[in-house]
């Protein structure tokens, strides 16, 4: 903030803040990975994936939901949940001011956006993290919105999909943030018991408290290509073990190799793949329906452990 901004009355300053947040709409966009200068409509038509190097660019929560859900019939839910500064946390700045700044910059109340809608006709509840809001960190508002969205999915027995992108628990809400890990995990466990599918899609980056709770508890865990995901950040690990980390450490491919996720899905294929998966999972609910021909839908069985044991 320049000195002139400091002395301006807050009403005037607000305007400049909003202007700063709006990215100038040029016709060209540079890929942060391969440095290629790209024609913006090409990038947008490709779900914000670089047409040259296939880098999955970071996108907003709303953009994520827009490219994932059917255009027809999607509506935002739980939009009224606001962050609470119960600790009156203050460091160099007040947390309250940090929240207001993030709200102005992103237009979101906190770091999670929830919608209900359809995925190729299949009703779903879908939440997406807004990484631009405080690094997608999870405090009360994120935990509460996730939990209530899950409770809606439970009540209506429709699948839930979560796109996570987060630096972890939000420091400024201290233990309240930590407890959101327990809270979200508990509601996911209820979905599991009730047989309501929950698919977690990890997008770059996922760390800390979000990784160690809702992001890895999916019936199916998916990651976008080359997303970074782990419990401890690479810097912390390097400081602890005093050695360089191997190439590709904590990337999606690393997670797949080590058995943490079921598959890596390209953003272009996300809708089709998840619709395919969820339609099969939800057919299990419809077994009582005599018209259902679930056998045709079943994947070929490759491995039956019981036979081996006998």
């Amino acid at each position: 903030m320049s000195w002139i901004d400091r002395i301006l009355p807050s009403g005037v300053r607000k305007e400049t803040g909003e202007r700063r947040s709006t990215v100038p709409e040029g016709l060209w966009k540079k890929c942060v990975k391969c440095d290629a200068v790209l024609y913006r409509p090409d990038v947008e038509n490709n779900d914000d994936v670089c047409p040259k190097c296939d880098h999955h660019m970071r996108i907003s929560a709303r953009r994520r939901l827009a490219i994932f859900l059917d255009a027809e019939g999607r509506e935002e839910i739980l939009a009224d949940i606001e962050p609470i500064d119960r600790l009156k946390f203050r460091d160099k700045k007040r947390y309250r001011d940090r929240i207001s700044a993030a709200q102005k910059a992103t237009g979101e109340k906190d770091a999670l956006v929830a919608m209900r809608g359809n995925l190729q006709g299949l009703p779903v509840v879908c939440v997406a993290f807004e990484f631009a809001f405080h690094g997608g960190s999870m405090g009360y508002a994120v935990g509460e919105k996730f939990t209530r969205a899950a409770q809606l999915a439970l009540r209506e027995r429709i699948p839930m999909v979560c796109f996570s992108a987060s630096g972890g628990a939000r420091m400024q809400e201290a233990l309240i943030s930590l407890m959101q890990m327990a809270k979200t995990s508990a509601v996911i466990e209820r979905m599991k018991v009730a047989g309501v599918p929950y698919v977690s899609v990890m997008t770059d980056p996922i760390y800390g408290g979000v990784s160690a709770s809702l992001a890895l508890l999916g019936d199916i865990n998916v990651a976008e290509p080359d997303a970074r995901a782990g419990f401890a950040g690479p810097n912390i690990i390097e400081q602890t073990i005093r050695q360089k980390l191997p190439k590709g450490f904590q990337r999606s491919e690393f997670l797949l190799e080590h058995g943490a996720i079921d598959m890596i899905v390209h953003r272009n294929d996300m809708r089709d793949t998840l619709a395919r998966l969820l339609s099969k999972l939800t057919n299990f609910d419809l077994v009582a329906d005599p018209e259902a021909e679930i056998d045709d839908e079943k994947e070929p069985v490759e491995f039956i452990p019981d036979e081996q044991d006998d």
Partner: peptide, 25 residues
């Protein structure tokens, strides 16, 4: 929890998350 390569390889996040879920019920 231990921040190390082996910890991440064996899924420290998942291990903690599973405990949170299981302990809740």
């Amino acid at each position: 929890a231990y921040p190390g390569i082996d910890s991440e390889e064996r899924g420290i996040s998942e291990a903690i998350a599973q405990n949170l879920a299981a302990m809740s019920r």
